[in-house]
Design a binder for these strands. Structure first.
Length: 504
RNA sequence: GACCCGGUAGCUCAGUCGGUAGAGCAUGCGGCUUUUAACCGCCAGGUCGUGGGUUCGAUCCCCACCCGGGUCACCA
């Protein structure tokens, strides 16, 4: 990994010097690209010879045979074979081949033709070096076995693939396709909400107070104001302020930051979408989430299919693509899973014993709702495979949700689970500023007692609420996890282009 | 944060029961005008993650640290 020039790197520097000696610029200013690689087959059609094309991209394969050379050029659309022949390029033109390497960016001009093996190929009449690659990309050798590409000695070190995502992307078209599918998913989610009249907004990432979730924040300092600022842990409180202001339907897609551990499902910064809709309750929002997830799944399916990456991931599951998703109530589903008539009738001792049995630590310190939540996670949540709404959470577990109409022990809250993981969390939002102040003060007491995740009283937010907050439904969805679910990806680092890592 | 596993050539890996290391591919040189993991021949390429310790001698054993992965804890 040394940056000192080894023999491999030195050989490429030597080629740069040789190119310059010949008057060839190793780094060009542009190229008049007229076609993409993937278009070439269509342009040739059934003919043996076709029109002249101008393609540009990276040299991804190279097979020299003396006075002739076969290469493959890869671009964002795919790859096309180049045929370089001394008779065609001339002495001087062909000499450039000696100074090219795998990984160089080139432009090629010439007519299409079909080789003896039937492959659509550019018979290159003019070859331009656009950028010399001074460092070998970790290309593996590829062969096609039964229609699938098999790589040999591929770039496989997960750490280096994350650190040098540019190299990972450069040598792995399927990784590019995966991240492109993620962008398509984001676009589909925007289109879905835009279609409902939602307004996309931007709220502060740097906040004097953090709130809207229970998490440890990143703290920084503004020099001119000489004050601490926190990176947001959620968008919630600012978006609700906007609904108070009269934007009835708003959403934001952006990064939240939580100063916690890193593992296969957690990155310190992650993409959250939150959307809030005035006059809607949680049943309306459930319909929104269902339709949004179907739109996201459809976009992912289409993007991966177009890239030839169809799999058996959930984005290809007809039950996910069609809906409707199953619904279950929190308490009854827990009672059923535990094979008891009514879990709320169990004694404290019985609950603790049940929790201890499934490996919960420190059961003596947990409240009844917390114990039940542990039991729920173990007996119900972790076993949910396909998207399922769980509704009506106990009040103590849902401090931001309105009480359920007809049963004040419950709240109007739902979560969407799939593959044992939370996908969405939503409420009929609390819009009573008097109640809200009490909840803030309870949080502040916890914070004073040393709870790092508790939040402070947000007087400005309370002032906003006091002007009158319309009833509204709100939803938060972790976009990274949604995409992981739809694509069957098991590590969050594989769906984030540049995951947080220690410097080398 | 705890425990376990790993770090050897540009890439993927092997290996040394302690005597300063090998393979395939890539690179370099030579040959080859329809190949596609192209092929054939030759050459070169590594302070074996870092720092200590034990030893005549450490890439190997011991300790610490760095980086990564896994499991667990944490993440309402």
């Amino acid at each position: 990994m040394s940056d000192e020039l080894n023999y491999v790197l030195q050989a490429r520097r030597d080629k740069v010097a040789a190119l310059e000696a010949k008057g060839i610029a190793p780094f060009a200013y542009g190229f008049d690209r007229q076609q993409f690689a993937a278009q070439c087959a269509g342009l040739l059609g059934d003919a043996e010879e076709g029109p002249t094309v101008q393609v540009a991209g990276r040299v991804v394969a190279w097979r020299a045979h003396g006075k002739t050379t076969f290469a493959h050029l890869g671009d964002s659309s795919g790859r096309v074979q180049l045929y370089l022949k001394k008779d065609v390029l001339g002495e001087g033109g062909y000499a450039l081949c000696d100074l090219l390497d795998l990984g160089d960016v080139v432009g090629a001009v010439g007519p299409l033709f079909r080789t003896r093996t039937g492959e659509v190929t550019v018979k290159v009449e003019r070859l331009e070096l656009l950028a010399k690659s001074l460092r070998p990309l970790p290309f593996g050798k590829e062969e096609v076995v039964d229609g699938t590409v098999v790589r040999h000695s591929a770039f496989a070190d997960g750490e280096q693939r994350s650190r040098q995502r540019y190299a990972d992307l450069a040598v792995h078209p399927e990784v590019r396709a995966l991240f492109a599918a993620r962008s398509k998913m984001t676009s589909a989610v925007r289109a879905f909400l835009d279609g409902l009249g939602y307004l996309e907004v931007e709220t502060p990432v740097l906040q004097p107070l953090y709130g809207g979730a229970a998490a440890k924040p990143f703290e920084t300092h503004h020099n001119a104001l000489d004050m601490p600022l926190f990176l947001r842990i959620a968008d919630e409180l600012y978006l609700k302020r906007l609904v108070i202001g009269g934007f009835d339907r708003v959403y934001e897609i952006g990064h939240d930051f939580r100063n916690e551990g890193i593992d296969r499902t957690h990155n310190p910064e992650f993409t959250m979408i939150e959307f809030y809709e005035a006059y809607a309750d949680y049943t309306v929002m459930m319909g929104r989430v269902e339709a949004l997830l179907i739109a996201a799944a459809t976009a992912v399916r289409d993007a991966l299919t177009a890239a030839g990456l169809a799999t058996d991931a959930p984005a290809f599951d007809p039950a996910v693509l069609a809906g409707p998703f199953a619904r279950m109530e929190w308490l009854p589903s827990l009672s059923q899973a535990m094979h008891v008539p009514d879990v709320t009738q169990l004694s404290d001792a019985e609950l603790r014993a049940a929790a201890e049995k499934i490996g919960v630590h420190g059961v003596g310190k947990l409240s009844r709702p917390k114990l039940m939540d542990e039991l729920f996670q173990h007996h119900v949540e972790s076993k949910i495979e396909r998207p399922t709404f769980v509704v009506d959470y106990p009040k103590e577990l849902s401090p931001l949700a309105k009480p359920k109409r007809g049963n004040p022990d419950l709240t109007e809250r739902f979560e969407l689970f799939a593959r044992g993981k939370e996908m969405a969390n939503a409420f009929s939002e609390l819009n009573d500023p008097i109640d809200q102040r009490q909840r803030f003060e309870a949080q502040a007491a916890l914070k004073a007692a040393g709870d790092e995740e508790a939040t402070a009283v947000d007087e400005d937010y309370l002032r906003a609420m006091e002007y009158g907050m319309p009833p509204m439904g709100g939803v938060g969805i972790g976009m990274d996890r949604l995409f992981m679910y739809l694509t069957g990806t098991t590590h969050i680092r594989d769906v984030i282009l540049f995951p947080t890592m220690r410097p080398e």
